[in-house]
Design a protein around this nucleic acid. Structure first.
Lengths: 195, 195
DNA sequence: CAAAAATTTTAATCCCGATTAAAATAATGC
DNA sequence: GCATTATTTTAATCGGGATTAAAATTTTTG
């Protein structure tokens, strides 16, 4: 029962749970989704969720960590592929949007960070801060190498990350639309950056 | 007590309440703010809020209607001032951002629409839809008159409105920053629209 | 100032969803 | 197949914030 296969089954089910939770939170709002709602999407009873998570707060926390992870992966992979600042920005945007509307989604919108336990809250805020800083660094890089026009990187970062973070508000798994989003969004968001 | 002055006192206090609520919701999250929190900001007891509103749901609903009103006013006034499509877009953005970070704020981020009562929810969704449509109409107008490059207006609208809607997430009444936001944001968001 | 209306508070109740404990079922290892 | 472990359910409890009713206070009116 402690073999890697079993571990994986547990983790798989836990991941399914996080995605079910993200779906519910995005769809029904946080206060509007009970553990029963999340469990129902998994064909389980609410009490069963406590096998995977200590309480509802931890469920939300894990959803947010997962969201942050996906953003970080998108960023990391974009940077690893090289190129100038603009290249990396566009690639990051494509990676992240692709993950959000693709098979890694849905991703929970982080609307309840403040009501997390202090340690969880601080950790998520830190992840969030780091991601924002990483994006701003890409902008700086682009400005330095001439691929991006000089601009207020803080504000530009806020603007672009806001667009990204808001996606779950209007995208609800319409796979026909997904392709369009992946193509258009990175273009639109980077259109204003050219020198 | 039914004179216009009294009516105004009631409305004034009610408006103060909506802003206190918006502040709390943005700052502490929806589930993290109790009516006691909102009341405390007004120097009142939680029970006192029931003089102004039937229940917490109605409080949220009114916060959202207020947010929608402010957006609509920004839009309306931008259109009234004439000019081409791009002019109107930029003016709308400036008006809206100015209202959000200025003395009309804070404005509640609409993260709990789904948990509103069905009629309230539908009404707010409709307001939201209408606002998005109005913005897309400005984009169409700009494309038609040549002031805006041809683009996917739906996606472009989603991108720009997302940036706007996310502002309360990172702007928390830092008045020194406010001016910068009003200047930079409309520029950044419209930079990608030029033909 | 006295009466009436408006506003707030005090002091409960209440209700629903989170949480828990123990039992039941399912999966796995030998 | 049997013992063990993993997973889920059943059936409660529990708690905290929303809500209410009645009383108190403040404001307004004439």
């Amino acid at each position: 029962m402690v073999g890697s296969a079993e571990e994986s089954r547990f983790q798989l089910q836990k991941d399914r749970m996080l995605r079910a939770a993200a779906h519910c939170f995005n769809e029904k709002g946080f206060s509007g989704t009970s553990l029963k709602d999340v469990a129902a999407r998994l064909g389980l009873t609410d009490a069963a969720l406590y096998y995977y998570v200590r309480n509802k707060e931890e469920l939300v926390y894990l959803c947010y960590v997962r969201a942050a992870d996906i953003g970080r992966e998108a960023m990391h992979s974009a940077i690893a592929d090289g190129g100038n600042g603009m290249d990396k920005v566009v690639r990051y945007l494509r990676n992240h949007v692709d993950a959000m509307v693709g098979d890694r989604g849905p991703i929970a919108i982080m609307s309840e960070i403040p009501s997390l336990e202090p340690e969880h809250r601080d950790e998520v805020l830190e992840l969030s801060r780091k991601h924002g800083a990483a994006f701003e660094a890409l902008l700086e890089e682009g400005i330095a190498d001439g691929s991006i026009a000089d601009c207020d990187v803080r504000m530009t970062g806020n603007a672009i990350m806001g667009s990204i973070n808001w996606i779950p508000k209007w995208y609800h798994g319409d796979t026909a639309m997904a392709e369009q989003v992946v193509i258009e969004f990175p273009r639109i968001l980077s259109a204003g950056l050219a020198p």
